[in-house]
Design a protein around this nucleic acid. Sequence first.
DNA 1: CCCTGTGAAAGTGTTCACAGCT
DNA 2: AGCTGTGAACACTTTCACAGGG
Lengths: 251, 251
Amino acid sequence: MATGRTHRPATRSRGIPEATVARLPLYLRALTALSERSVPTVSSEELAAAAGVNSAKLRKDFSYLGSYGTRGVGYDVEYLVYQISRELGLTQDWPVVIVGIGNLGAALANYGGFASRGFRVAALIDADPAMAGRQVAGIAVQHSDELEKIISDNGVSIGVITTPPGVAQQVCDRLVAAGVTSILNFAPTVLSVPDGVDVRKVDLSIELQILAFHEQRKAGEETAGEDAVAASVPKETPKGPDGDVPVVMPA
Amino acid sequence: MATGRTHRPATRSRGIPEATVARLPLYLRALTALSERSVPTVSSEELAAAAGVNSAKLRKDFSYLGSYGTRGVGYDVEYLVYQISRELGLTQDWPVVIVGIGNLGAALANYGGFASRGFRVAALIDADPAMAGRQVAGIAVQHSDELEKIISDNGVSIGVITTPPGVAQQVCDRLVAAGVTSILNFAPTVLSVPDGVDVRKVDLSIELQILAFHEQRKAGEETAGEDAVAASVPKETPKGPDGDVPVVMPA
DNA sequence: CCCTGTGAAAGTGTTCACAGCT
DNA sequence: AGCTGTGAACACTTTCACAGGG
């Protein structure tokens, strides 16, 4: 996804669509809640509602995993929890390192849904010597000099980057060189990685900007006129850096 | 998106595709960096590389906004920054409230990319009376009793939820009732909202689970055998809650 | 009769490749 | 000659609607 040319002849596998993979954790969460309430079976309709999707999509998604339901009845909750967990690779536990123990790194270290569900915070790493030794979420922060050793000693293959953007790429390079092949990046930077390494990005300000876009549309539709000022900006006659194009965005 | 029936006859507007909207902030960030380095123009190829997409996609995206480039030359950086900012609604500033000032809420309050780019943290709100009055990121935390008043006094239309999952829905309901129409939800819960309210979700554990899925695939391909145990689990002969289906996921 | 599983249709998004402007 | 803007082809995703097992 991130960088990759397709490489292997279609990545083998029963090819579960990416969109489906992205929803499996959602189903798993809903199923886990049902399981805790000792609900034995659930219909596609009910489960879909709990997961916030529609039932046709859910059934299609499950059809990629196999035929795990019973017609006329629904799905066995425990069995489905197991199947999805296995499909997602959560039957094994994944040691994870978090690099950059600022506010956000600390928040993640403390995040409960992290420690459960197959993930274990193997180490917290920070470049600030003053942080080293401090306890965060019951784990001692280690200095980044130790990064390579920590990765290989613990067999870590997943890294989380919560550093300032300026150092994210170099942290990423070190993680990858040490053997990490999956990265969750919270720094607002485009990371470049070699083939075979997956990067997922979480970007707070991008999410807000997308909301702002839709918010603006709503406002424009109601008043339907205020917006017209912007809309009537000459679409042709572009260019004009020689003058007064108002540049927004101070910093 | 979240709940919505389509409502208005195709949402009017020049209908910029959702996928394009999601990339505009990426382009904007890359362009802002170029602008800071006083680069006057940029080609689709260069900008695409900086934003981590391919150039055909970028050109297609920009074509939905209008014809802002010059053939044979490229795009004027300042002009494009302005056009994208306007399109995203960032030429106005958006007051935002953050509800739930734990680790994550504090991280967001301190997040720089938040305060710039048109967003202003209008208030931090927490249900814990002990938090009220404390300063976080230079802003005094207010008690949630004040929520409705804060929303209406500041004309807030965007809310960020960083509460524990158990209270997320009720916080959401109060935000919506008070006039918020866009919500960024960090709590691992499916929020239900009335039509016309947008919800975007950021879920840390889901991202990790998606990474684990791909990570598992990589491991399976290399060893190509270990994985076969799982793969040979009888696809037919499902069901069997009467016995030994190993249930993963302790709590 | 109920609810799953799935082909087929419809809708979105991405990539190609080149016409057309500067 | 170079680079944008865009139709047309392709790929992926969602939705529909119903066949078919329990």
